[in-house]
Simulated scan of single mutants.
Amino acid sequence: MFPHLNGLGIQDPTLIERYSVRQEAQKDVLKIYFKKQKGELFAKSVKFKFPRQQKNVLVDSGTHQYKSITEISRNLTLVIDELNKITKPEAPQEQDVKEKILSDLRHLEKVVSSKIAEIEADLAKLK
């Protein structure tokens, strides 16, 4: 039913809660978040990198100048279409910038504290 997600190795797409896409250098990074399972402190997520497609676009036909641009890969657009069917994203709403920054900061705090606890646990095993 979701061939492109299955192609990425996602066996049960019904567990997908949300996703995000960002551009990093010459790649698009897709991060898929799964619903939190019983007994888990944080929900699991997986990250995929897709190279951007390179295109040469004619800028000036008189001098035959071309400009190299990049765009999202076709495979990623197909994956996003499938993800939209699963997550049914709402229309983008105007969000206060300050609210978003604070939300991102709180999320970062959780991730960092979780990672510190994980490293401390690994360190404790070494003693």
Rank of each mutant, 00 (worst) to 15 (best):
K67G: 07
H64G: 11
N75A: 13
E120M: 11
P13Q: 05
I116T: 11
A25P: 08
K98L: 05
E118R: 14
K47I: 07
D60C: 12
I10G: 00
S45R: 04
L105I: 04
L8H: 08
L78D: 01
I116N: 09
D104V: 05
E99M: 09
L78E: 01
S73E: 02
L83E: 00
Q37S: 09
D28N: 13
K127W: 07
S113K: 11
Q53Y: 13
E90Q: 07
P13M: 03
V79T: 01
D104K: 05
Q53D: 11
F50S: 01
Y19C: 11
S68N: 09
K27Y: 12
I72V: 09
P13V: 01
T87E: 05
N56G: 14
L105C: 09
S45M: 14
D104S: 06
K100Q: 06
Y33K: 04
P13N: 08
V46P: 00
P13Y: 05
E24H: 14
K110M: 14
T63S: 06
I101G: 04
S68Q: 14
F42H: 14
R22V: 04
K55T: 12
L102N: 07
G62S: 07
P13K: 02
K110Q: 15
P92M: 01
Q26G: 11
L123F: 10
L105W: 02
R18I: 00
I116W: 11
N56Q: 15
Y33C: 01
G9F: 03
L123P: 02
I69L: 10
E94W: 12
H64F: 09
T63G: 02
T77E: 02
L30N: 01
L76W: 04
K47C: 03
E118Q: 10
L108Q: 14
D122Y: 12
D12E: 13
Q54L: 13
S114E: 10
V111G: 13
R52C: 06
L8A: 13
E82S: 14
Q65N: 11
L41C: 15
E109A: 11
N56T: 15
A124Y: 13
V21D: 02
Q37W: 12
L30F: 09
H4Y: 08
Q23N: 13
E82V: 07
K35G: 03
L102M: 13
T14H: 15
P92W: 00
F34T: 00
N84Y: 06
A121C: 15
F42I: 03
K27W: 12
V46R: 01
S103L: 08
Q37N: 09
V57R: 10
M1N: 05
F50K: 01
F48S: 00
T87Y: 06
E40D: 09
D28A: 15
A91I: 01
S20R: 13
E71R: 10
T87P: 01
K55G: 05
M1P: 02
E71N: 07
S103Q: 08
Q93N: 08
F2V: 11
Q37Y: 04
V97N: 01
E120A: 06
F48K: 00
L126R: 09
L15D: 07
K47P: 02
K85Y: 14
F50E: 00
K55C: 10
E82C: 10
G7F: 06
K36I: 03
